[in-house]
């Protein structure tokens, strides 16, 4: 067990350091902060709502992540494949599962760091009013979990191809499905199907779970939802990495 954790830690550390050694990290963080500020203040007109709440801020995260998370996730495996380092990584005395989890965790922690850097928002609302900081914490948790769900799907598409553009676009589409699954235009596409199919498709949606957390409700079933999306996507990543090693 200790050995496994050490392997995951070693790989994740290298991976995370890799972000900061290339411009990826800085470009991503700056764009994330600028865009989340722009949407909160300019589009949602944060001050005009006259509420001490971060709801308008968090509302945009699920949409921002739609493009920004696949941009981080697309390189997870396709880069290894393209540069040939996958051959080194998968012949080291570690399992493919450890490598998958480590790479995922590193990217997730990185997204978490970007999220933490939005702390001036928290200071602002606390300075201006009297917000419910518990709700804000739950909001951050929901945002972080959504990023994780998107990231796990990006990891999956990244394992499928060495082409990062293909990986990015497929990931965006998958994440978009997660976001829009409960939306009537999407469910209407399957109106011919029995009710339980429509229900299942709608149930895949991240939106109700995200909204619950934004309201400050941390329920087991929402956490289970996020855990199962990530678990499923990472497991599928494992299957693909295993079967496509030589390709």
């Amino acid at each position: 067990m200790e050995r496994r954790c050490r392997n995951v830690w070693t790989i994740a550390k290298r991976e995370l350091a890799g972000y900061f050694m290339s411009p990826v990290a800085y470009v991503f963080i700056i764009i994330f902060l600028v865009l989340s500020g722009f949407f909160t203040f300019m589009v949602s007109d944060f001050f005009a709502t006259n509420e001490a709440s971060l709801a308008p801020f968090f509302f945009w995260h699920q949409w921002l992540y739609l493009f920004l998370v696949p941009a981080i996730g697309m390189r997870l495996w396709s880069e290894e494949r393209r540069s040939g380092t996958i051959e080194l990584l998968l012949t080291m005395p570690i399992t493919a599962g450890q490598a998958i989890i480590a790479k995922f965790l590193a990217a997730w922690v990185f997204l978490g760091l970007a999220l933490i850097l939005t702390f001036p928002m928290v200071i602002t609302v606390n300075f201006l009013g009297n917000p419910d900081n518990g709700v804000i914490a739950a909001g951050y948790l929901g945002s972080f979990l959504t990023a994780g769900a998107y990231l796990s799907l990006s990891s999956l598409t990244s394992a499928m191809t060495r082409n990062q553009v293909v990986s990015f676009i497929t990931a965006v589409v998958l994440c978009m499905f997660l976001l829009l699954a409960g939306w009537p235009p999407v469910t209407n596409m399957v109106t011919w199907a029995p009710y339980w199919v429509i229900d299942t498709v709608a149930g895949v949606s991240v939106v109700p779970h995200y909204d619950a957390l934004q309201r400050g409700v941390i329920a087991i079933r929402d956490l289970v939802y996020f855990a199962s999306v990530m678990g499923f996507a990472l497991f599928a990543t494992g299957v693909i990495v295993h079967s496509r090693r030589g390709a």
Partner: peptide, 14 residues
């Protein structure tokens, strides 16, 4: 086993 793959890959930014 120590392994030197064809084309000697390495993590480019490291």
């Amino acid at each position: 086993v120590g392994y030197l793959p064809e084309n000697a890959p390495g993590y480019p930014e490291m």
